[in-house]
Design a binder for these strands. Structure first.
Lengths: 268, 268
DNA sequence: GTTGGACTCTCCCACCGTGGGAGAGTCCAC
DNA sequence: GTGGACTCTCCCACGGTGGGAGAGTCCAAC
């Protein structure tokens, strides 16, 4: 095999990369030309390097960061596969996030920004039997389900009577470490192991109804917070969700969720 | 409603935006505070501005560019809905692109980078009856289908005998304006209106078989080009695909496609 | 009144990957 | 030996956000 070297332009054409890209990859040590002329600085690539260059182009096409590509190229097949799997998971997560975004955007594009009727009212005091969990914002959906799965057996075993709906309580801000609670309203069950109790004070609240998948809840909260602030009020934790029609009873398009945020005169 | 103004920090907390973001939005004219103290430069926001700020936060959450958000906020409801629909389409396209990427990444993560056996061989001369089209790289899939839909009736009406597979011809480089052709091998049909003919010269080729959805074809081409360049050969247009098992005959996981790239000694 | 601490201001730089363009130098075929 | 195509390095731009410096401001507590 003759090893006539290629200057950067022809080499770029072979691997479907731009000259700028190749220079950048050289500079960052991802793909160095086999020879660099000391005098002129000209980069010379060997035809064998197209293999790596094509691989880089392929992985870039899948949106892997250059740093990760560098890792993957340098790694043994085993850890390389591991890196690729990690990236696959990252991409899968991005897609599912984008799909939620898409659904919200659909709704916005069709219904416009309004579409939520916010009511200012009063809530009675409630006593909830709850289980708690700590999670990040991204995990909320899974964690709530998990909590429901923990809660119902406890209630059943203890023979505690309760009526729907299920409730969930959230902090006001979506932080990295947020404490949530899932429960039901009941006067019974004090002292049951695994159960905790939450006394929700009565008082003024803002509320609205969300019909549709949970991925679109953000829209409802947006309307809710806007209405609260416009009235010069301040939201107070915990935010309450009541699952009037849940995933067990209806397809995701028909879920009904009541959103309630306690409010307070801002002067207070 | 008392209009006690808020400094940037408390206002940021209300709308779940960072102080940096608010300053940036002010600077670019997206959301200006109602009052800026001439002496100190302090920004003062009115509680009513939380509505716009929340909307901005919401649209950013859906990944709309700030410039588009500015447009949307300024526009009438009608054109706003239009803008949102356009963004929805953009996002939908990104998702489908990402899904293709994900599938390729799956395959890479599982099978590793190898997985394609590239054969160097010789192809006989072939005479194809084709229809042509011009498209961008993103449209290829749809255009090829459209071409098939145009080709088959013409063949049928003219009573031209042919045998599977269907073939497609592509240029070497994926450019913005690429000419493609779809056809079948047949000795008949000269002069049929709507049909053109393509004489594929025989000679040395590199080829491989791709089994799976078309969204993963890039992987096969990567292996193919790498093999060609490693042997010091040069690919020649047109690239040929033969659809041995097409979408009409099998689910997408089981599609079989033969990829053939004519090659030439690089010295020539 | 003064002090201290929390807040705010403006500026610059960083990330990521790519492209554009300036200005200078190099290669090679005619 | 000359022209034209190529290459070099260097700086700046995009998008949106964050970090940090260094200076100034607000307000409550003493």
């Amino acid at each position: 095999m003759r090893d006539e070297l290629l200057t950067i332009g022809p080499f770029a054409r072979l691997c479907r990369l731009s000259v700028k890209q190749l220079r950048h990859y050289d500079e960052m040590g991802l793909l160095a030309p086999v020879r660099v002329d000391a005098g002129s600085g000209y980069r010379y690539y060997a035809p064998e390097q197209t293999r790596d260059a094509l691989t880089i182009a392929l992985l870039r096409e899948m949106d892997l960061p250059l740093a990760v590509i560098a890792q993957a190229l340098a790694a043994e097949p085993e850890s390389r596969a591991q890196i690729l799997r990690a990236e696959r998971d990252r991409l899968a997560e991005r897609i599912s996030g984008d799909q939620a975004r898409l659904e919200m955007l659909e709704r916005l594009a069709e219904g416009g920004l309004p579409g939520y009727e916010v009511t200012m009212g009063r809530e009675p005091e409630r006593r909830l039997a709850v289980v708690r969990a700590v999670c990040t914002p991204a995990e909320i959906g899974a964690k709530v389900e998990e909590c429901v799965g923990r809660l119902l057996p406890v209630l059943g075993r203890a023979g505690i009577a309760w009526e729907p709906p299920l409730w969930a309580l959230y902090p006001l801000d979506l932080e990295e470490r947020m404490e949530i609670a899932v429960g039901v309203q009941t006067p019974h069950g004090a002292g049951t192991p695994g159960l905790r109790f939450e006394a929700l004070p009565g008082g003024p609240v803002a509320e609205t109804m969300h019909i549709g998948p949970y991925s679109q809840l953000l829209l409802a909260y947006n309307a809710l917070f806007a209405a609260i602030h416009e009235r010069g009020l301040r939201p107070r934790a915990p935010v309450r969700e009541a699952y009037l029609v849940g995933p067990a009873e209806a397809p995701r398009e028909e879920l009904m969720t009541r959103l309630i945020i306690p409010v307070q005169e801002s002067m207070a």
